[in-house]
Design a protein around this nucleic acid. Structure first.
Length: 828
RNA sequence: GGGCGGUUAGCUCAGUGGGAGAGCGCUUCCUUGACACGGAAGAGGUCAGUGGUUCAAUCCCACUACCGCCCACCA
């Protein structure tokens, strides 16, 4: 189970990803596999801390005013209080993971594992500390990883600004920028080395507006695009990734003018009156001053991508900062190999290519966070600034004493990125680093199911860290569930007011109906579900249908035989054989769908079987006296099986119904998955029944079109040609209005004849004329096709044969209809 | 800039190289001894457009249009 945020509440996304997990677990448990679904919660550092800090602020308090110890005490208490909610909700949704084995990423044992991994990676040289440009979230007051940055197109302005050669001089160089507030930290102007326009500028200096107090060089760098803007760009290494690279190449200073609140600061370099302004405020002030000083050459509307924080929505600030990183290339290589070898497989496959591309272009992972709620880095510093990395403080002291001859250590206040600990989830929850029986048995697991938004954040990291520390992939399959949107395809969000609470749906329709309603909307290849609540209503009706079928069966006068007892095959009626054959085929189809993670197809298949085959046709057929000898056994047998097929999807109603029927065992939860070897199959008889069914439909159609009320029933007899001595009648299905006493038994043809005998002549004639037209067109189409030598020569023989058969059928039908029309003309 | 989905009945969506489907909605009929949260029947679609491959294309290929998503340091 991907661990939900400990403080989260269930949302529809859990419905689309966790319901399949529950279905898969229940299915495999019924198959007799040693299936386990391991639950847990995640401390979700940034999200949790953001809420906590906000709540503290409302009370006029802050992290700092409380102090770290007190703050963490409150955080723990809070996570314990709210931590149970999501699991209570999961229970209400019918999820049945192995609650006994639940874990929390901040459990002491898991935290120890986190420290162990950190130390191991550090000693292997894969974790390092360095001053790099990182993503700063000024609201969360922390760095965030690249994977947590979202890019969003917004309307902005592209300013063209002139940097003069000297004060009070018009001549200078023009650059284009979207971020004038960072120009206070400019250290150069860059042009492309081959740009003729600026050839003579390189090497000269200009003054940085609007203060015009600092002089910076004009340099040449390949990364500048001469086509964009003016072809000259300001270089601000501390506040832009490209500029940072330029800065490194040209060995430029990298002053920063933004503090951790994204406020202008002049600590490193003069910023004049702008010091203390927020970045937006400073931008407005600077633009206005540039305009007054006639240094603003142009401003044009411009749409460009800005980076925002996934968690807080704040505009992310590139910031030059001393942080901890994981070197990713050595970890990514084995993961790529595992994917290419097929040791990790994605369903749908296309996500595998995304995974591969991401790993190929991976960059080092910034793992230190400036928040308090989380795993504090197992890193200490001596007074002289040397670094000690150890699993415990005790050990750190030992090392410090031995290597640095000091006792004075200060622990790094930063915590680890949440995904560092959840990246270990696949093996820490099984007891790692102990070689527990669970770890031996369940690692690697069969499948991870998740939404595609965390393939990079989580899945990729689990694969990399699993390979590193367990020597094997953490799971063989990754099933990627679609994301849930509203009916208009919009994300569900509080601000849009389109959020649907799954618990409300459970309240309205029941958990089974919610699950079925959700699953029926999942499509294997689809990347999104536009959630349609009416599917839950339909599913509620479906459950009602099942309940009533049970009522019918249990109210039969006959006694229900023991579970799994079926009459001898030669006593079974045609309808019995048909429904058993259909059940047999349905078991195969549902098993295949579930094996391929196609939960939508599995749901649709059981739905169609129960409603449109079992209830609409088989159950109806048993209302005839001729069906009585075998119906109790077959009805109970089929419904018992259908409940087992449905159980993974709808655990509650299936338990009730199954218990109310003859059954073996205590609970359907531990019942076995239906075995097709125990379900008699007779394709030939089923085919005859199907043909009869079509005839019955035709009779109904005719009756309905003729406007004949369905009061009287006509039995449709099995044709004498059917080699089935015990075949009963397909009874009470076809109905015809007759003035004279109807023949109560007969072939479908006789039934049709009876109806036509009593139908209004004009209506009947119109119908047959229409029918004749349709059939004529079909016959012509078939004739044309078969006359085409290229078709006969090239098409597969069975296709040609089928076409011949069809044509013959149409001709026969047409002949019959034309004969009837002729008959009507004569008797008119 | 790169990559990936989607476009089928009024709505939400299945589907297949050879006779266009479901549910809801709509129309008509049915209070028949499981169920009106039900049953029966019906109307409704040049399967986004153009071109190609093929005996045959809604399905395969190319391009176009529109919708959506992911990745990306063009100021």
């Amino acid at each position: 189970m991907p661990p939900p945020n400990v403080t989260a509440r269930a949302h529809l996304g859990h419905g689309s990803t966790y319901t399949p997990m529950d279905v898969a677990t229940r299915y495999h448990r019924m198959l007799g596999d040693n299936a386990d679904w391991l639950p847990g919660t995640d401390h979700a550092a940034i999200a949790t801390e953001a809420v906590l800090v906000r709540e503290l602020a409302a009370e006029g308090k802050s992290r700092e005013s409380l102090g770290r110890e007190k703050y963490l005490e409150i955080a723990w208490q809070w996570s314990k209080e709210t931590g149970g909610t999501i699991f209570e909700q999961f229970r209400a949704l019918g999820f049945g993971p192995d609650w006994q084995r639940s874990h929390f990423t901040m459990d002491e044992r898991l935290s120890a594992a986190v420290r162990k991994v950190f130390v191991a990676l550090y000693r292997d040289g894969l974790i390092y500390r360095g001053k790099r440009l990182v993503n700063w979230d000024p609201v969360a007051h922390s760095t965030i990883s690249d994977a947590e940055v979202e890019h969003e197109d917004r309307d902005g302005v592209l300013w063209r600004i002139r940097y003069p050669f000297s004060p009070n001089e018009a001549a200078g160089i023009e650059i284009a920028t979207t971020r004038p507030e960072t120009m206070l930290a400019d250290v150069a102007i860059a042009v492309h080395p081959k740009d003729k326009r600026y050839k003579n500028f390189v090497g000269k200096s200009v003054l940085v507006p609007p203060l015009l107090e600092r002089s910076i060089p004009i340099i040449a760098d390949e990364s500048v695009d001469p086509e964009f803007g003016t072809g000259a760009v300001k270089v601000t290494p501390a506040h832009d990734a490209t500029d940072y690279e330029i800065g490194l190449r040209h060995n430029l200073p990298m002053p920063s003018v933004l503090d951790l609140d994204a406020r202008i600061t002049g600590d490193e370099i003069g910023v004049g009156k702008y010091g203390g302004m927020m970045r937006e405020e400073a931008r407005a002030a600077i633009v206005s001053d540039l305009r007054n000083k006639k240094l603003l050459a142009e401003e044009q509307p411009y749409r460009y991508a800005i980076a925002t924080s996934e968690r807080t929505g704040a505009v992310v600030e590139p910031l030059l900062s001393l942080q901890w990183f994981v070197m990713m290339k050595p970890l990514a290589e084995p993961a790529l190999q595992a994917y290419r070898d097929g040791r990790v497989r994605f369903v749908p496959e296309r996500y595998g290519r995304t995974f591969e591309q991401w790993l190929e272009n991976i960059r080092d992972w910034n793992i230190s966070r400036q928040i308090w709620w989380g795993h504090q880095l197992p890193v200490w510093y001596t007074d002289d600034g040397s670094v000690v990395v150890a699993e415990t403080e005790e050990e750190a002291r030992k090392i410090a004493r031995a290597e640095r001859n000091t006792d004075r250590l200060t622990r790094d206040p930063d915590t680890l990125d949440t995904w560092f600990s959840s990246g270990l989830w696949a093996f820490t929850i099984l007891g790692w680093p102990e070689r527990t029986p669970e770890l031996e048995h369940w690692y690697p697991s069969q499948v991870l199911m998740t939404g595609w938004e965390i393939i990079f954040l989580w899945v990729a990291r689990m694969v990399m860290l699993g390979l590193r520390f367990m020597g094997d992939v953490p799971f063989k399959d990754v099933f990627v569930a679609p994301l849930v949107f509203d009916m208009q395809g919009r994300k569900m969000s509080k601000s849009l007011g389109n959020v649907i609470d799954p618990l409300d749906l459970v309240e309205k329709y029941g958990a089974d109906a919610f699950r079925m309603g959700m699953l029926r909307q999942l499509r294997l290849e689809s990347q999104e579900v536009r959630f349609n609540e009416s599917r839950c209503l339909e599913a509620r009706n479906f459950n009602n249908k099942i309940w009533n079928a049970l009522r019918y069966i249990t109210s039969l006068p006959e006694e229900l035989p023991p579970a799994m007892a079926l009459p001898d095959t030669d006593r079974l009626s045609l309808a019995d054989k048909w429904i058993l054959t259909r059940l047999n085929e349905t078991v195969i189809r549902i098993s295949r769908a579930l094996d391929g993670y196609d939960f939508g197809l599995a749901a649709e298949t059981i739905w169609n079987f129960v409603w449109y085959e079992f209830c609409d046709w088989y159950l109806e057929s048993t209302k005839d006296a001729n069906a009585q000898p075998t119906r109790a056994a077959v009805l109970s047998f089929v419904l018992n099986h259908a409940m087992r097929l449905l159980h993974p999807i709808a655990p509650f109603i299936t338990e009730e119904v199954w218990l109310a029927l003859p059954h073996d065992g205590e609970s359907i939860v531990t019942a076995s998955w239906p075995d097709i070897a125990e379900i008699p199959r007779d394709v030939a008889s089923a085919g005859i029944f199907e043909a009869l069914r079509r005839k019955v439909e035709e009779i109904r159609n005719l009756r309905s079109e003729m406007g004949l009320p369905p009061r009287e029933r006509v039995r449709v007899a099995v044709p004498a040609s059917v080699p089935d001595t015990t075949a009963s009648l397909l009874a009470t299905l076809a109905v015809a209005e007759v003035e004279a006493a109807p023949s109560r038994d007969g072939t479908p043809e006789q039934a049709l004849a009876e109806i036509t005998a009593h139908a209004p002549a004009e209506t009947l004639r119109a119908r047959y004329k229409k029918e004749a037209g349709r059939l004529t067109a079909e016959v012509e189409r078939g004739e044309r096709k078969l006359a085409d030598q290229r078709f006969v020569a090239n098409a597969k023989p069975e296709v040609v044969a089928k076409e011949r058969e069809k044509l013959q059928g149409y001709r026969k039908e047409l002949e019959r209809v034309l004969k009837m029309l002729a008959e009507m003309e004569r008797t008119k």
